[in-house]
């Protein structure tokens, strides 16, 4: 079973399941650079996933579907921003509320428009993103299995990481986002409106999240399913946090989280009950968070301790 072909196709599946995490980790990265944690990327993904499926189904146009998905996701971002930054509701509370609203809202909308509360499969025949074979690489054995022939959005997601890096570190907007993230009042006194930057970073976030969501419903699967993000928004954010909001490192940590997801998918085929296997991605997320935070804690404690070494090393009185 464990021959080279198998390993290659497994690695390919890792990339397949990591694709939404690439999108989500970049989505949460831009808001964290602005100094905020966006706990509602799942809502944006859900909104985009459903809208994309419905609109592309009705219009039979992938482009319209994608545009509608992005608009839906951006609308969620605007609602969050309005509540959190204009009405001054606690951001976390806002995100939790919006998550619940969208979980119920998408199910509601799915029923209204597709007359089913679980899947859109029967009613809507949406367009989907196709796969892409990379020239040259597609002819190299093994490597082609791993890297080539993925959904087009997989390559978009990798491009998205590069774009995000460029945006954050090379552009004027990126400088402003980092400035606001570090000291919002200082940015304000320089004439950069933090609230505007929050809105912009949430909107950028929503575009990334929208692609993440549409990958799930129009790439990875070809239909919308109730609550289909099942924690991916949070897993992607964890990957970004473990990587300390560094774009390329976030890619690597996303792969780590994707690996456990792919492993779980693989184990579904074995005799172990699927319910037990389904726990794997979540448990491993918790474990990775605990390990990485422990390391960070120990290092900072050690540094503090070293600074106070003379103080502690005196004889007791």
């Amino acid at each position: 079973m464990f021959n080279l072909d198998f390993i290659c196709s497994f690695l390919a599946s890792v990339i397949r399941v990591t694709t939404p995490l690439f999108f989500v980790s970049m989505a949460t990265l831009v808001t964290r650079k602005a100094g905020l944690l966006n706990m509602a990327t799942e809502s944006m993904m859900l909104a985009a996933a459903l809208t994309g499926v419905l609109v592309s189904g009705w219009t039979q146009s992938l482009l319209f579907g994608v545009l509608a998905g992005i608009v839906a996701s951006a609308a969620v971002a605007l609602i969050i921003c309005y509540c959190a930054f204009k009405l001054k509701t606690d951001l976390y509370l806002t995100c939790i509320a919006v998550n619940t609203a969208l979980s119920g809202g998408t199910t509601f909308a799915m029923y209204v428009f597709a007359h089913d509360k679980l899947y859109t499969l029967q009613v809507v025949h949406s367009k989907a993103f196709g796969n892409w074979n990379i020239p040259f690489i597609k002819d190299i054995p093994y490597l082609s299995t791993i890297l080539s022939g993925h959904n087009i959005l997989t390559y978009v997601s990798i491009l998205g990481v590069v774009i995000m890096w460029f945006l954050i570190y090379k552009t004027r907007l990126g400088l402003r986002i980092r400035g606001v993230g570090e000291n919002p009042r200082a940015a304000e006194s320089s004439g950069v409106d933090p609230v505007k930057i929050y809105f912009i970073s949430f909107l950028i976030c929503s575009v990334y999240a929208a692609f993440g969501g549409m990958y799930m419903s129009m790439g990875y699967l070809s239909y919308f399913m109730r609550d289909m993000m099942s924690g991916r928004g949070f897993i992607g954010m964890s990957a970004m946090n473990v990587a300390n909001a560094k774009p390329f490192l976030s890619m690597l940590t996303s792969l780590m989280f994707g690996f456990s997801q792919a492993l779980a998918n693989l184990m579904q085929l074995s005799n172990i009950p699927s319910e037990a296997v389904s726990m794997l991605p979540y448990i491993s997320t918790v474990i990775i968070l605990v390990v990485s935070s422990s390391i960070r804690m120990v290092l900072s404690l050690r540094k503090e301790r070293a600074e106070s070494k003379d103080y502690y090393d005196q004889p007791a009185d």
Partner: peptide
């Protein structure tokens, strides 16, 4: 009418009650 609309309603209630600036 599917049950789930009530989740939207709940969210609106939370958002507005916890909003400092609502009617501020």
């Amino acid at each position: 009418i599917p049950l789930e609309f009530v989740q939207v309603m709940q969210a609106v209630v939370i958002l507005l009650i916890a909003a400092e600036q609502f009617l501020g």
